[in-house]
Simulated scan of single mutants.
Amino acid sequence: MTGLTDPAPWEGPSSDPNDEQFGDVVEAADLDSAGEYDAVLVGEPYDGAVIGRPGAREGPAAIRRELAGTKTHHVERGAVDSVADLGDVEIPPGGVERVQNAVRSVTTDIHATNTVPVFLGGDNSLTVPNAAPLLTHSTVGAISFDAHLDCRAVRDAPTSGTPYRQLHRAGLDTLAVVGARHFETSTAYHDYLAEQGGRVLPPDAVGGDPLGAVDEALAALGDVDAVYVSLDLDVLEAAAAPGVSAPTPGGLTTRELFRMLGRVAGDPRVAGFEVVECAPPLDDGTRTARVGARAVAHFLSGLGAAR
């Protein structure tokens, strides 16, 4: 039992023989073969912990569908290859803690392979099991592209708003949040993050110099051994990504986000990446899923999966 479903076949929809799309290059893999690839995709169809509006359980399928039709060529880095799909994590019934524990048993095995996992969410509560296995062997810093800090106190049960409080308790060394909105997260949680030595870069600190901003975020992590990167699509301006649990105005542009993802992926300490809170039932057409797919493509191009 691997806790993973069999990956569905990938196929590029273009009829042009000169087109190479992700659907043409992503291969099916399992845990035994995962280490042969630079990166592996892992779906996490779950939204049982979301604070806002549900729908993110449909995110993995939608992001895969949009990615399959996305061309592999980055203008500056060349074409992406060496990517596989491990299928979806099997989500058990029950409460959030049970789900987090079950997912962690799978992600622990994935992190043990010689590849970088790219988790397709799913809600932000699964950031905990996605990143926690790294804490057992390394010092770890996280970069979170998010409109919110997600460090609420855990009360009755974990939620999509508590992952970084949980990870700090488990040993996360430091956190930098890029794109957090003014007037969106309460003072108590900003104070908490400051007490943990965290760094917050709001959208106006990114505009004009996104590469400088992400370099500042990486520098804020210090000399940690591993870096985990999380993208909550609500970090974007609401018009660019309406299909999220909690869209808010004043966010990043897609151009800023894509440049930063390509940059951060080039850090050799990066040990995992996730895209969360893509909720197709809340979307305007396929706008948000398409942005999520492009975000994955930009991350992969920066990771070094380019020929």
Rank of each mutant, 00 (worst) to 15 (best):
I110M: 01
E97Y: 10
R104S: 08
H73D: 10
V80C: 06
R104F: 05
S82A: 15
T107W: 04
G69N: 09
T113K: 02
G69S: 12
G95W: 07
V80E: 02
R104T: 03
H74A: 13
N114V: 02
P93H: 09
E97D: 05
T70E: 11
L86M: 08
G94H: 03
E90I: 15
V103E: 09
V99A: 14
P93T: 07
D81C: 14
H73M: 13
R104Y: 07
G95Q: 03
Q100Y: 00
D81H: 10
R98A: 09
G87E: 02
V80R: 04
T108Q: 06
V89G: 00
N114A: 03
G95P: 12
V116P: 02
V96I: 11
N101T: 07
N101G: 10
D109S: 14
A79P: 13
G69Y: 11
L86Q: 11
T115S: 14
A79L: 13
L86S: 03
R77L: 14
P92S: 10
V99P: 12
G78F: 12
H74G: 13
Q100L: 13
R98Y: 04
V116Q: 02
T113C: 08
G87A: 03
G78D: 06
R77M: 14
T115D: 03
V75H: 09
G87F: 05
V83Q: 08
A84M: 15
A79H: 12
V103N: 06
G87T: 01
E76P: 01
G87M: 01
A102M: 03
T70Y: 13
V106I: 04
A112Y: 02
G94P: 04
V99S: 13
D85S: 15
D109K: 08
R77H: 14
A112W: 00
E76R: 13
D88Q: 11
E76A: 13
V83G: 06
R98H: 10
V83D: 07
H111V: 03
G78C: 14
G87Y: 03
R104W: 09
V103L: 10
V89W: 05
T107G: 01
G87D: 03
S82D: 15
G78L: 07
E76Q: 12
A79D: 14
T108D: 03
G69D: 06
Q100I: 10
T70Q: 06
P93C: 05
S82V: 14
D88E: 13
S82L: 15
V80L: 15
R98C: 06
T115E: 02
